[in-house]
Simulated scan of single mutants.
Amino acid sequence: MGRAGELGVTKGSAGEHCRPELEHVGTGTGSANSAMIRVNERLGFVTAREVVVVNRSP
């Protein structure tokens, strides 16, 4: 599902609805999801930043 979804987003972005003024596309992928990270890299995306989420224990 991940690869098909990502390819669909990419094709839609580059297809008839092309928005050449866009410089960045935001997405979220868990750091442990190496398969999806590889798909993103194959499509030419690079990691721009990493977010760390912390919670306080109750």
Rank of each mutant, 00 (worst) to 15 (best):
R19S: 02
A48T: 02
F45S: 01
L43I: 00
R19D: 01
G2T: 03
G5L: 06
G2W: 11
G8L: 00
V9E: 05
M1F: 14
N33S: 01
G26S: 10
G26P: 11
R38G: 08
V25R: 07
G5Q: 08
F45A: 05
R38T: 10
A14M: 14
T27Q: 06
E23D: 09
L7Y: 01
V53N: 07
P20F: 00
N55E: 13
A32P: 09
V39C: 03
G44P: 02
E23K: 11
T10D: 11
R42E: 05
V39D: 01
A4G: 10
S34P: 11
L43S: 04
V9H: 01
N55K: 14
G12E: 11
L22C: 04
E41Q: 02
R3S: 09
E21R: 13
M36R: 14
S57Y: 11
G28F: 14
S34K: 15
A35F: 04
H24G: 02
E6C: 15
T29Y: 10
A32S: 15
T10G: 09
G30A: 11
L22E: 05
E21K: 11
H24F: 13
A4R: 15
H17S: 00
R56W: 15
P20Q: 02
I37R: 06
V39P: 00
V53F: 08
R19Y: 12
R56T: 07
S34G: 12
R42G: 05
G12V: 05
T10C: 12
H24P: 04
E41A: 07
V46T: 08
V46E: 10
P20V: 00
R3Y: 01
E6L: 05
N40M: 12
R19A: 03
C18F: 09
L7G: 08
A14Y: 12
S31V: 10
A32Y: 15
G5A: 00
G26I: 13
T27G: 11
A4Y: 13
R19T: 07
R38F: 07
E16K: 15
T47F: 01
G28W: 05
A32I: 12
L22W: 08
N55V: 11
G26V: 08
R42C: 09
R38S: 07
T10I: 12
N40S: 02
T10S: 12
S13M: 15
G15C: 02
M1W: 12
I37A: 04
E16N: 02
G2E: 08
P58S: 09
G12M: 09
I37E: 09
L43H: 00
V46A: 09
A48S: 08
R49F: 15
R38Y: 04
T10K: 15
